[in-house]
Simulated assay, not measured.
Amino acid sequence: MEVRGNQALPTHNKYCPQCNHCTKISQTTDTCWDIHGKPPDKKWFPNKSTKAMQQPVIWKVATSSQVAPSRPPSCPRSTPVGLLNGGSKRRKTPIIEVSYPLPPDAVWKKVSLRSGLGKREREYTQGWSVTDEPLCKRCQKQCMGKNAKRPEFLEDLFCNLVCYEEYRLRTSNRFLREELFKIEHGVCTNCQLDCHKLVKDTRPLSLERRREFIQKIAPNIAKRKNMFEKLVNEPTEGNAWHADHIVPVYQGGGECKLENMRTLCVACHSDVTAAQCSERSKARANAKKKLKELMGSIKIGMKCSAVTNIKDHRAIDERGSSVIEDELFLEVPGSAYSIADS
């Protein structure tokens, strides 16, 4: 039920492009082996020159006529308690389901952005009208910003900040965590522990003083050895607090807004998760019990029907045999039976 963030994450998943044709990481439709074939030397990654890396902003638009994303369905309607898709058990919505359908007179294009020195390019898919006007990445309306045709940041691919925040909330767990921090400031809603202040005050201390400080300020975390050691060795926000779903994901609380999220310290989140696991195990046990009873009743019914069928067959056989025996006794003139009768 958690969304971790602000930790040392691997960078190869953060900025690497993804091919829309074969869905492989670290390649695009321009370098896809399925489209262009496998190169003889088995290497298809061009080297980036240092001069290109020093450019502050690189912008390019390429028409992807060969491959177009699947037509996304209409945006699901909102439901109470911040649930975007009531009953969903997914933590976030796939990108193709977030955007509105592309207008019939528009085409998909690829936009590559790189902002800042030394940052890698990131490719995004955006709709463009036949009049060469960029469309919002979510609602497919025309973008009117000054950087709409030459975008520098991801925000430039949207018509306004509302669409941008809605898109990011539903596709990025890190953004969801950052927005939750702006509201609750890293304070646990259960035990009221200020996790942000705990991390901030723990970082400049030595390992021994970190242990003493955490044991004094957060005794619930200190009681759990693994969490305690992790926070002592690496005092980060992700090791101190988690973003928890109020309505659990397994109960349909996935794909939610901030209304269904709350801040919990790692100790309280562990307790909540343990309680939910116990509840789920009890529910599974009750379901197995009911299933067993149902199967038992079905077996009993099948046995009763089988016994009834056997009895019916036996009755039919008995009636048939008596008929056959009666047919065997025939009156023959001059026989002992005919004389006795006379």
Rank of each mutant, 00 (worst) to 15 (best):
L193Q: 01
R314S: 11
Y124G: 02
V266K: 00
N260F: 02
V307A: 11
M227R: 06
S278D: 09
E155L: 13
M261Y: 07
K282S: 13
K43D: 14
M302S: 10
K51G: 14
K200C: 11
G320C: 08
L264R: 01
T50W: 04
D41M: 06
K257T: 15
V232F: 01
W33D: 10
K137A: 08
M1H: 06
T189M: 02
R91W: 09
G145N: 09
E237Y: 15
G253W: 00
S172A: 09
R170I: 06
V232K: 06
R122K: 15
D156A: 08
R138H: 02
A243M: 05
Q140W: 05
S49T: 13
C159W: 09
T308N: 03
L102H: 03
L180E: 04
K290G: 06
G253P: 06
E155Q: 15
K89Y: 01
E327N: 07
A306P: 02
G116S: 08
S342F: 11
T131V: 04
S88A: 05
N160W: 04
H242W: 05
P69T: 01
M261A: 11
G82T: 03
V323M: 04
K290D: 02
N173F: 07
V57I: 15
K51E: 15
E237N: 10
N190T: 08
G118R: 14
A106F: 05
P72N: 09
D341I: 07
K149P: 06
K182Y: 03
P94D: 03
P17N: 08
C277Q: 13
P73M: 01
M302K: 12
K38S: 06
T29D: 10
Q126S: 03
G238D: 06
M144A: 02
K149L: 06
Q140E: 05
Q142I: 15
L83D: 00
N286M: 13
T125M: 10
R138V: 07
M227I: 06
G252I: 14
